[in-house]
Design a protein around this nucleic acid. Structure first.
Lengths: 250, 250
DNA sequence: GAAAGAAAATGGTTGACAATGACAGAAAAT
DNA sequence: ATTTTCTGTCATTGTCAACCATTTTCTTTC
């Protein structure tokens, strides 16, 4: 295993559990405690986790949002995300008008789309727009300011652009899902765009792997009741009381 | 097997799995580790993957996308176009609101822009938008349908998006310049967007190398009198009777 | 078109370097 | 004081760039 992969797995583990011991990681990664310690030191130096006596804890979401660690973000939970993406892609019908939210999970959704669908796609992700047209699909991009880190279109003009559309389905990514706070994301501007998109869609699908559950970021963009969550593994059945959950098998 | 074949197989593999070891690739490709290492070095130099100890990881989508654009756009009259682009870039002031038309010449204009300018940029080119923000400039993209071949935003929604803006300067590409037909381009939809952009701009600059003169395409998007032409070599002085021409030296 | 030579690609080897796991003594927690 | 955890060290293993020999491909020459 590459050290980069271990880094991703550790960060990933921490996002889920918030704290972890050296022993746990050594066993889970199938490696020695020495290596785990070295990894934790490296990640600590990068500011990607807090090293504490006995193990490590996750860094605060707000700090992480500004750090914007693309490396580990795209590496982690790849298989799970692809699973969700493949299932979500089957939900698109020929007569749909689909909104695709910017983000790494929804990018895999675009990859998984059939090139033969005649559905109309609207997105606020530059990369997403590019991939859609390269697949030969009919794609629109909304206008507005572009955010550097995520290459998403945001701002007042973006929200204004969205008002014209009526989507049959929209596919959203999220940073956190919780019963109390609903769907949350760290960036205010992006949250506002997400909110507007959801409100113009007949059905909202949220693609969220299991690590997103019980996480809470700064801004809520939708309540649980208003959307259908697609996930790989539901750890707590109480979520079923508040929303429709599709657990994708295998 | 051709090395190019291996390259694309490696890139595909990485796009799927996000991380891979040298050993894995050697076995999968049925070749030696030496060759895999050489391939990884080559791909790393091209910026198409990240080489790490033990193997390689996928590069972020946004970086890769621009690389593709750069390598695909190897066209003619590059030096001349760069010359025009460099001059045009000096025309941008800090308080300008600039429209940048989609196209290869204007893309070089974006490359030539100073990263320090505080001007506001609006564009209908996806690649242009991307480059602008990667330079750290403030950039907006207009909304609308995306045309596959040129990756430009076009259509009714694009024109509608443009209505909101008032530009101090706009920089356009063109396919033909003639006294009788003015500025012409082969695609109707693109012409309509160009026309709308020009009509919302105080000054219109047209970037056109000498090959564009006396050429006429299907649709006229502006008359000669309404714009200032920047070119490398003016072969016929009669154009000076109809418009302002800037001939860039050297 | 064939032969000869040049250039490029490939696979294997080697010494240098990096990563790993185990251990011992120091430091910290209880 | 005892246990746990950390840091530094060291031997082992894994990986890498550079080099060389061989094969393949391209060019040149006749």
């Amino acid at each position: 295993m590459l050290s980069e992969e271990r880094y991703s797995m550790i960060i990933n583990f921490l996002e889920d559990k918030k704290a972890v011991t050296v022993g746990e990681l050594a066993e889970w990664l199938g490696t020695s405690e020495s290596t785990v310690r070295r990894d934790l030191n490296a990640l600590h130096d990068m500011g990607r986790l807090n090293k504490v006596h006995g193990g490590a804890t996750a860094v605060e979401e707000k700090i992480k949002a500004t750090e914007e660690d693309v490396q580990s973000k795209s590496l982690k939970n790849v298989e799970e995300k692809k699973l969700l993406a493949r299932y979500a892609a089957t939900l698109v019908n020929d007569d749909d008008v689909v909104y695709v939210d910017a983000g790494t999970t929804t990018l895999m959704f675009v990859d998984a789309l059939s090139p033969n669908t005649r559905a109309l796609f609207v997105t606020n992700g530059i990369v997403h727009a590019k991939k859609l047209i390269q697949k030969g699909l009919k794609a629109y991009i909304i206008g507005g300011q572009i955010k550097l880190s995520t290459e998403a279109v945001i701002g007042a003009e973006a929200i204004n652009s969205l008002r014209k559309y009526n989507f049959t389905k929209c596919f959203m990514g999220t940073n956190g899902i919780s019963v109390e706070s609903g769907l949350t994301t760290p960036d205010l501007e992006e949250a506002l765009v997400k909110k507007e998109a959801c409100s113009h869609s007949y059905i909202t699908y949220v693609l969220a792997d299991h690590t997103k559950f019980k996480a809470v970021s700064a801004i809520t963009f939708a309540s649980l009741g208003r959307c259908c969550v697609i996930t790989d593994k539901l750890t707590d059945n109480k979520f079923r009381d508040y929303t429709v959950i599709k657990e994708v098998e295998q």
